[in-house]
């Protein structure tokens, strides 16, 4: 197993933990946190590829930085929505937000 595989295994593990959190957690704040985990798993994978693939160095790190910025913005908007929704429904439980049910 080469070095990159270790990184990728770590990234996959983090991603799966994040995905599990997004799907299984009830609390919206925890879901947002799990989303961050997933984004960071991708960041690890990108940085690892950037180090190991000769042609991808600049682009990989740049992409990772870009995602970190994006994640910050996303968390801001996401938490604002969570707060606004809390004012409306007095709850942060995701399974209670089912007004769009068909």
């Amino acid at each position: 197993m080469s070095a990159v595989d270790w990184y990728l295994t770590l990234a996959t593990g983090l991603f799966c933990i994040g995905a599990y959190g997004v799907l299984a957690r009830r609390n919206v704040i925890l879901i947002v946190m799990s989303l961050e985990l997933m984004l960071n798993a991708v960041n690890i994978a990108l940085v690892a590829f950037a180090d190991f693939l000769p042609g991808a160095a600049g682009r990989g790190t740049f992409f990772a930085l870009f995602i970190i910025t994006l994640a910050a913005a996303e968390v801001t908007v996401g938490l604002a929505i969570v707060v606004a929704n809390y004012r409306y429904s007095r709850s942060v439980q995701a399974d209670e937000f089912s007004e769009m049910k068909g």
Binding site: L23, A94, K101, G102
Partner: peptide, 17 residues
């Protein structure tokens, strides 16, 4: 088809995954 639209974001996310 109606039960598919549960209104819960997580079940949609499950679909995506």
């Amino acid at each position: 088809l109606r039960p598919l639209q549960t209104g819960r974001a997580q079940s949609y996310a499950f679909g995506v995954f």
